[in-house]
Write a protein that binds this DNA or RNA. Structure first.
Lengths: 162, 162
DNA sequence: GATAATTGTTATAAGACATAACCAATATGC
DNA sequence: GCATATTGGTTATGTCTTATAACAATTATC
C-alpha cells in the first residue's frame, strides 16, 4: 500500500517458480566469505564435538600447547577475542583437565597457562580431525590455490589493525 | 603437576616476551577464513548500524527487493538460514515499514514478500555503504584476485550440499 | 606514596544459528 | 471424498560467539 507498487495481481507468482535472483548479494565478496565460513564452522563444530571441544576451546588449546606458559592476555590478543570471553574457555579447558592455570611468580596478577599431558593428546587428535575436515572441504582446490587464498585473506585481516 | 612437565622455574617467562607461535593454528585455512570473516562482519555491522540494519536484515532486504513476491521459505532456502530465524528478521523489516507480508491467494499458507518504497530506498543506501566498506577492506587486492577468491570460496561453499 | 595502568574476573547483553513442536492450509493416496 | 502426509509460517527454547562495563588485586608510573 504505502509503496504505491502494483499490488499482487500477478506479482505473487513472479518469484514462485523462477530461480531467485541473488546477484545483488553475490556481488559482494563478503557474502561469499560468510557462506564459506558458515559451512566450515558447521562442519568443524560437528567434527570436534565427539572430543568435547568447541572451535574456541580448540583454538585456545592449540596456542597453549604451542606456547607453554602463555598468559591469558597474550592468548586473548593473539586469538583476537576479549579477555572476559577467554575466562569461560579456560574454565572449560581446566575443568576437563587439559590446561592448568599457574600463578606467575614475577607478576602475581597473571596466570601462566600450561597444557597437561591429556591436553596435548586431545590436541593432537583434534588437529588430525581438523586436517581431515579441511582435506574433505578443500578437495576442489589445488595446493597453490590454498596458499594464495591464505595470503589474500591475510591481507584482508590485517586491514583493520592499520 | 599431572602432566609431569618441568614446573614453572623458567617456563613462566618463555612466552612472556617472545612472539607467540601460531603456526599450529595458521596452518589451517579455516582459521584465516574465520579471522577475515570476523573483521568483515565487525566492520559491516558498524557501517550498517546507522541505517538500522543488521547484516541478516540487510541480506534479506536485498533478496526481497530483487525478488518481489518471494516466499519466506524461498528466502530462507536462498539465505541458508532456518525458517524460524527468518520470522524475527521479517518482523523487524516489517515493523520498520520496509517490507510487507501479503497473503498469497493461490496458497493461503504462504506470504509473498514485497519491499516498500522506503525499503527499496534504504536498500540502495545500504548497498552503497557496503560497496564503500568492501572497497576499503579489499584495497590490497586486485580485481582479478577478488574474482578468483570468490570462485574458490564458492567451491568450498558448494561442497556441503553435495 | 598517590595515581594510573594491567590482569583476570563477574555480570550482562546482543546477535547468529539450530531444533522440536505446533497450527493452518494444501497435497497425496486410496 | 476422506484419512494421512506434507508444507508454510510460527512459537519456544537452547547453544555458541562476541562485546561492554565494572570490579578487585597487583604492578607501574611519576
Amino acid at each position: 500500500m504505502q509503496d504505491g507498487r502494483a499490488a499482487n495481481t500477478t506479482n505473487t507468482t513472479i518469484a514462485a517458480k523462477c530461480k531467485v535472483k541473488d546477484e545483488g548479494l553475490r556481488q559482494f565478496l563478503g557474502y561469499h566469505i560468510k557462506r564459506a565460513y558458515n559451512v566450515l564452522r558447521s562442519d568443524l563444530t560437528k567434527s570436534l564435538e565427539p572430543l568435547g571441544l568447541r572451535i574456541t576451546t580448540y583454538s585456545s588449546l592449540i596456542l597453549i600447547v604451542d606456547n607453554p606458559g602463555i598468559r591469558q592476555s597474550q592468548l586473548a590478543t593473539n586469538l583476537d577475542i576479549e579477555r572476559p570471553n577467554l575466562v569461560v574457555i579456560l574454565d572449560e579447558l581446566e575443568q576437563r583437565g587439559w590446561v592448568n592455570r599457574e600463578r606467575v611468580e614475577s607478576d602475581r596478577r597473571a596466570y601462566a597457562l600450561f597444557a597437561t599431558l591429556s591436553g596435548r593428546q586431545v590436541c593432537e587428535t583434534a588437529i588430525g580431525i581438523d586436517r581431515a575436515h579441511e582435506t574433505r572441504l578443500f578437495s576442489g582446490l589445488k595446493h597453490a590455490e590454498i596458499k594464495s587464498l591464505t595470503a589474500m585473506l591475510n591481507k584482508i585481516e590485517r586491514h583493520m589493525g592499520e
